[in-house]
């Protein structure tokens, strides 16, 4: 059953095998990165609301500017993540004598980002639940805002909802990593073992870092 590029979610091996018969195209991966960026931009709304509530009335204009900047950064974040993952995988695969163009690596890495759309949606929901549950005291001085910000970080890092959101992100990242293994295998002409190492080493380190951050060991 051919379900288009969504087939990459459950059958990445055959999907990438089929893609290798065609010329590299970054259209669909770019579309995926755009969607991820949009979800990231939307996920900043609760945090932006929180920031706006902290600011005094005369600084609401600054808050609006901060909102636009945050949304822009979050939007670009989708493309940035795509680029970083792709470049890292390409470089690591060189160790295993990987062969193939960077464009193909980027294409397959972009497809691998597809599970991040689901992860982003669920993460945004948890973020909304977490931040909407907080009430903002009236603050009149910068010192109070700094104190609030520090306490907010403490709340967010110890919140069970934040931990759940982190766990969900890791799970979807594992799913993406699985797709990338098949992607690198075909894009860089690696053996299954080398493809697992190419993706597993950087992603393992990253997931380990996320777990450490999540459990508060850092």
């Amino acid at each position: 059953m051919d379900t288009g590029f969504l087939r990459v979610l459950l059958d990445p091996g055959r999907f990438f095998e089929a893609r290798m018969q065609e010329e590299p195209s970054l259209k669909v991966p770019a579309l995926i990165a755009i969607v991820i960026g949009l979800i990231g931009a939307v996920s900043t709304i609760p945090m932006t609301d929180l920031t706006m509530a902290m600011l005094p009335a005369e600084m609401q204009g600054l808050g609006l500017l901060m909102t636009v900047i945050s949304a822009g950064v979050a939007f670009i974040g989708g493309f940035l993540a795509w680029a970083i993952y792709g470049v890292v995988f390409h470089i690591v695969s060189l160790i295993f004598k990987g062969q193939g163009s960077l464009e193909r690596t980027m294409e397959f890495t972009g497809y691998g980002l597809l599970p991040q759309i689901f992860g982003g949606i669920i993460g945004t929901y948890f973020s909304y639940r977490l931040l909407s549950g907080l009430s903002i005291p009236s603050m009149t001085s910068p010192e109070q805002m700094v104190e609030f910000s520090e306490n907010l970080v403490a709340v967010l890092t110890t919140s069970p909802l934040a931990q759940i959101a982190g766990l969900v992100s890791i799970l979807f990242l594992v799913w993406s990593a699985n797709i990338w293994i098949f992607g690198m295998k075909h894009a860089r002409g690696l053996s299954t073992r080398d493809a697992v190492l190419t993706v597993g080493i950087p992603m393992g380190l990253y997931i380990l870092y996320m777990l450490i951050t999540l459990t508060g060991w850092l």
Binding site: R129, L130, G133, L134, S135, P137, M139, Q144, E147, F148, E150, N151, L152, V155, S159, P160, L161
Partner: peptide
């Protein structure tokens, strides 16, 4: 202090 966290 200045920060109040409402229940989630």
């Amino acid at each position: 202090g200045g920060m109040t966290a409402a229940p989630i």
